[in-house]
Simulated assay, not measured.
Amino acid sequence: MKKIFFILSALILTNCAPPTTNVTKYKSLPSTPDSQKVFIYSPSKKPEQKYVVIGTASFNIDKQTYICEYSDMTNGFAKACRIIGGDAVMITEMQEPDFTSCYRGSANIIKFVTDESYAKISRNIIKKYPPIPDSQAVKTYSKSEKPNREFQVIGSIEFDDTGKTFICDSTDMMETFTKECRKIGGDAIQIKNIKKPNNYSTCYRGSADILKFIEKKTVSTVSESQEKTEIKKAPAAENQNKKATPSHTIYVAVLETVSHSVIKQNENLYLTDVLREVARRVLPTKANYLIMTRENILAMLPPDKSIEECEGGCIVETGRNISADYVAQARINTYGSKITIGVELYHTATGNLISSFNAKSDDLDNLEKEIREKAPDMFSEIKVLEATEK
């Protein structure tokens, strides 16, 4: 309010009854120095640089107004711009002199966006999970709240001022926390610290932990006699299915097929999708299995690694990098005039090869049939291993 009053007072005292300038701002920014040029954009011209609107100004007249040339209007806009820390003025509406001798108009006051405009983000990632979709809510706990579910901390994040930051209000900070949580597959954020704007910074600053909820195993409370009765009544097949269903989500990754140009890239992708389709059928979501998509895998790979680069001994390492419990990959080659395929499935925790199959065919159509016939048995070994480990 003090800055708005200053603008009005300064303009009223300049010569005689000058136009009124009103400013509405939503960011608290340091004033722009007089030595810095304020750019003026006409209604037909837009800045090429990215910007945000931080305020508005209007240039009106009354019966006593006479200092109202075009330059008076733009100077008034520039002065308002400097006071609230803007870089430029975009004139949104302008009326040239008609029944009066004055220019009139309104303008947006803008601030150019650079890398320094955004908050400084510091991340400490302990463990990554597949990213969660935007449609899935991320719960936020205040510093004093405690989650009512068992969880693990999989990372932390800090939101800080660069010294030139202005995209840093409380909404910006919370959106950043939520976005980073989703990236590494978290379920919630726990606020650790929040600092409101003060004399040293116009930004909100803070830190938070990223939480992943842990699914508890169901503990049976039936008596020994009841348990024996239930076992007698339950069909054997039903007991086997229950035993084979993990108590927590098991992540399975099928890496891109490697062929070294034996077949085309689009054919590589198709055969990989066939393997994922078989895996999804054998290991359904309702049984606590999740087959990672191509997008999941790409999002979780280290920045310096391409999904096409991984083969051989790198398969298990890549599986661990993307937090997969099991990882599979196919390799295409030739044997005489035939096309061959070899598929391997690894348990990432131990690095053990738990299953594989090989096939050869005269063409890709028949090779696909071989995959659909043999892959189910390979992926079924995951169920066997999970049941054994229970």
Rank of each mutant, 00 (worst) to 15 (best):
I184T: 02
I184P: 04
G186Y: 03
G186C: 03
G186T: 02
D187Y: 09
A188K: 07
A188D: 05
I189W: 03
Q190D: 07
Q190N: 09
Q190R: 14
Q190S: 13
I191A: 05
I191D: 06
N193Y: 11
K195H: 12
K196S: 12
K196C: 00
K196M: 13
P197N: 10
N198H: 05
Y200D: 15
S201N: 06
T202Y: 10
C203F: 01
Y204L: 05
Y204A: 04
R205I: 01
S207D: 09
S207H: 07
D209F: 09
K212A: 02
K212I: 07
K212P: 01
E215T: 15
K217R: 12
V219N: 04
S220E: 06
V222T: 09
S223Q: 03
S223E: 04
S225P: 00
S225I: 10
S225R: 08
K228N: 13
K228S: 07
K228Q: 10
K228D: 02
K228R: 10
T229A: 15
T229L: 15
T229D: 07
T229E: 12
E230D: 11
I231E: 12
I231C: 01
K233A: 12
A234M: 14
P235M: 08
E238H: 04
E238R: 10
N239Y: 11
Q240G: 00
N241L: 15
N241Y: 12
P246Q: 06
P246D: 01
S247F: 11
S247H: 14
H248M: 08
H248T: 15
T249Q: 11
T249S: 10
I250R: 03
Y251A: 03
V252K: 03
A253T: 06
A253F: 07
A253P: 07
V254L: 08
V254G: 09
E256W: 02
E256Q: 14
V258F: 03
S261I: 10
S261K: 14
V262R: 04
K264C: 03
E267D: 14
E267Q: 15
E267M: 09
N268K: 10
L269F: 11
Y270F: 15
Y270H: 12
L271M: 12
D273S: 14
